[in-house]
Design a protein around this nucleic acid. Structure first.
Lengths: 235, 235
DNA sequence: ACCTGAACACCGTTCAAGT
DNA sequence: ACCTGAACACCGTTCAAGT
């Protein structure tokens, strides 16, 4: 019995489909999420999904919506910088729970409601912190993917062989062909990482980049306040 | 006659395949690049490609290699900051010439030789500018996709209807549901962009984010020099 | 209104055969 | 060593039919 129709008592619903897709991605990886496989997991024929979700792309966007909803809200009692920092790091935790999410978010081209709401709230924090709309626009773009808690890590790791002697040979090749890469590879901030542990987008490095951006935003905010103090900062 | 075998006098070669794939992506978009379509463009059967390129993924990586080679070299006569800034902006121009490149680079997981060489040279510029290996490691990660001249623009544009009255209706919906987004949308630095012209990753915004990062790198470099002046900055 | 079944037009890739 | 032909095991999606 390859499927159990007894579980199909409850009618198919958009939410049930998205939850099944997220569950499947969590357990089997995003490549295991196809219209056919999700339908099978629900005990239903592939075309049944199309009554609730218009396309594979819509399914992926809906999956993002589901997990973006997991991001905890902004703390309204904090100044903009710690509030945003905290929320971005919270978003990062959600992304770490769903390792497929980064790849899917990178491929999205249209925003869904939960995504728009998250963005809207971040902008609200900037505006509430004294940013002009123009500056808020700029900093949101500068923040980019870091608003979701990840940095595009285009620093690809060559597959590191398990065999130590092969690994040493590879490192020797790297050191002669790309000496600077070899230099910083061994000088990573995290000594536990193997010598070719590039491609590491770990917590320290994420926060390093995030804080440079947030500090830069603060500096631009101050500069703007100085050159056009139409509204005094004290109230 | 659906194909011309006369063009198949020259033997198939890895470079010929990559060039054909790049040409096809430039003219028809990345979705038109399949093992089958590239083979057809070369007047050859799909499986013939596998003698020179091991997989579709290898084809995509090879395509990136081809265009990364188009990025002009670093100017060795300049200090690290203008040199890197200039080269990143040059990389950006290459990416603009090949609109498919951003999407493909985002999906790569392994570095190819030209990519490693480019990265190696950037690191060399940081090290030559006085960065410690540790700090160079950090700033390379913080730079992230911006080293390729693009920022991951996770700020997706809702499809804007052509019809003005529909567009006005959409904007009204946005303004009530996501007021802050609407606020900064109309306050973009580029007045020519339509009111819902979010998702714009234009030159000004790219440079805004890039300069925040580069300035932050400089500040960290100075801070490190102050706290451990084992090598005096003056010579 | 929702689900089904069959089919269409594709994919990347393996395998065995040709030269 | 390189190219071919046929096949395999998938895709997303359309269409017409069922209830």
């Amino acid at each position: 019995m390859p499927e159990q129709p007894s579980s199909r008592r409850i009618p198919l619903t958009r939410k049930a489909i998205l939850d099944a897709a997220v569950a499947r991605a969590d357990s089997h990886g995003i490549d295991a999420v196809s219209m056919r496989s999700v339908a099978q997991a629900l005990g239903v024929v592939p075309m049944a999904l199309y009554n609730h979700i218009s396309s594979k792309q819509a399914l992926l966007s809906g999956m993002v919506d589901v997990i973006v909803t997991e991001i905890p809200p902004l703390d309204p009692d904090q100044p903009w910088q710690p509030a945003i920092r905290q929320r971005v790091l919270a978003a990062r935790e959600v992304m770490m729970r769903h390792p497929w999410a980064v790849e899917v978010i990178k491929s999205r081209t249209e925003a869904t409601p939960a995504v728009l709401q998250y963005i809207n709230e971040l902008i609200g924090a900037f505006l509430g912190g004294g940013f002009t709309p123009e500056l808020a626009h700029q900093v949101m773009h500068a923040l980019g993917s870091r608003m979701w808690g990840f940095a595009l890590d285009v620093f690809p790791t060559p597959a590191t062989p398990d065999d130590p002697s092969q690994r040493a040979a590879l490192f020797e090749v790297m050191r002669t062909a790309y000496p600077h890469i070899a230099t910083i590879a061994v000088a990573g901030a995290h000594p536990k990482v193997a010598m070719l542990g590039l491609g590491c987008d770990n917590q320290t490095e994420f926060e390093f980049g995030l804080d440079i951006l947030l500090d830069g935003f603060e500096a631009r905010l101050q500069a703007a306040a100085v050159e056009s103090p139409q509204q005094a900062p004290e109230k």
